[in-house]
């Protein structure tokens, strides 16, 4: 009897231990399961994060593989410094100097017109604008950034080109028309980045200047703008990148003649326009030469992007 009782108690306890053991096992199992899930998810996220690297590498490999042979065959000098583009003549001429000059001209024009306007807007928005005005201007700039580039190009074609032709001279389609259209298109980039950098100037700088008796404008000119200059420089470089890379809007207003423009009223063809226009019918070496043009464009953009990295984050950092 006694013994039996002991036995039952022992068995009960053993049962309990077994249950606990099972529970422990299950928990460990579940934790392990969870840990594995977490690991898998982390790897999947990492994979997505390096997708950008893979894409950039893929793009450069494909563009270079297609464009490099023709550069090698004719020489970089022939390609970059030759004024003649005659892909179907005999012997063929693959000089893209006119297009390089064209891209440079319209980008320079866009910067000259767009940067003062954009930085002006940025200073106004960050320093002067009453809240109510800001509420109107901000969506306006977002809209400016959102409008498709081809719509700007179309507007340039139907409004700007005739305007230039009738009142200034030339045939309307010109460096000037392209520069104006591009200047409008880079405005949002220039405004947003400049404004951010102006707002990032420490409050103390401003307060110190005010305390010394400087007016608001003196403070802006002597303290805020110099302190924000690295950000503004970044804005200019990114604006340049945008202007160099724009294609369809430029095709519609630039006239696209393969000559080095002599004046702002001359027709011009940019690197981007050059590729888009001729890809439609190019074949063989001609097509490869267009990919080589893409290589040049790609390298130029890479250089600009690296320049952004070299700009010190804040004035005084260097």
């Amino acid at each position: 009897m006694e013994e039996g009782g002991h036995r039952t108690a022992f068995l009960l306890r053993a049962d309990q231990y077994a249950d606990e053991g099972k529970w422990l096992m299950e928990t460990m199992q579940r934790n392990k399961y969870r840990e594995i899930t977490e690991k898998i998810i982390e790897k999947a996220l990492l994979l997505s994060a390096i997708a950008a690297i893979l894409v950039v590498v893929l793009i450069s490999v494909f563009i270079f593989a297609q464009g490099w042979p023709v550069i090698q065959k004719y020489g970089l000098g022939h390609f970059l410094l030759n004024m003649e583009w005659k892909p179907l003549a005999d012997p063929v001429q693959f000089g893209i100097l006119p297009m390089i000059a064209g891209s440079f001209a319209v980008t320079f024009g866009a910067i000259i017109l767009g940067v003062p306007l954009g930085v002006g807007c940025a200073v106004f928005l960050a320093e002067f604008a009453p809240k109510r005005v800001n509420k109107i201007v901000r969506p306006g700039i977002e809209l400016l950034a959102g409008i498709p580039s081809v719509v700007y190009g179309f507007w340039g074609l139907v409004v700007l080109v005739p305007l230039i032709q009738n009142h200034i001279g030339g045939r309307g389609m010109s460096v000037l028309a392209a520069s104006i259209v591009l200047a409008i298109m880079i405005l949002p980039t220039v405004i947003n980045i400049s404004e951010d950098s102006i707002r990032a100037v420490p409050r103390e700088y401003k307060e110190g200047s005010f305390a010394l008796g400087a007016t608001h404008w003196q403070t802006i000119k002597k303290v805020i703008l110099p302190a924000a200059r690295s950000g503004i420089l970044t804005a200019v470089v990114l604006g340049m990148g945008r202007a160099i890379g724009e294609t369809m809007a430029v095709i519609l207003v630039a006239g696209n003649a393969t000559i080095v423009p002599g004046s702002i009223l001359d027709m011009v063809r940019t690197l981007t326009a050059h590729i888009a226009i001729e890809m439609g019918y190019a074949a063989g070496e001609h097509q490869q030469a267009l990919f080589a043009t893409g290589v040049v464009l790609f390298v130029v953009i890479m250089i600009l992007n690296s320049m952004v990295l070299l700009i010190p984050r804040r004035a005084g950092d260097n």
């Binding site: 950008a52 690297i53 894409v55 950039v56 893929l58 793009i59 494909f62 563009i63 297609q66 990114l238 990148g241 160099i244 890379g245 724009e246 294609t247 981007t272 590729i275 888009a276 890809m279 267009l290 990919f291 893409g294 464009l297 790609f298 953009i301 890479m302 600009l304 992007n305 952004v308």
Partner: peptide, 20 residues
Amino acid sequence: FTETLAGIPSIVFGLFGFLF
């Protein structure tokens, strides 16, 4: 690389997409 991707002109994307 993400910044670089953002800066690549659309026509270069076009060339790549055409090739690939």
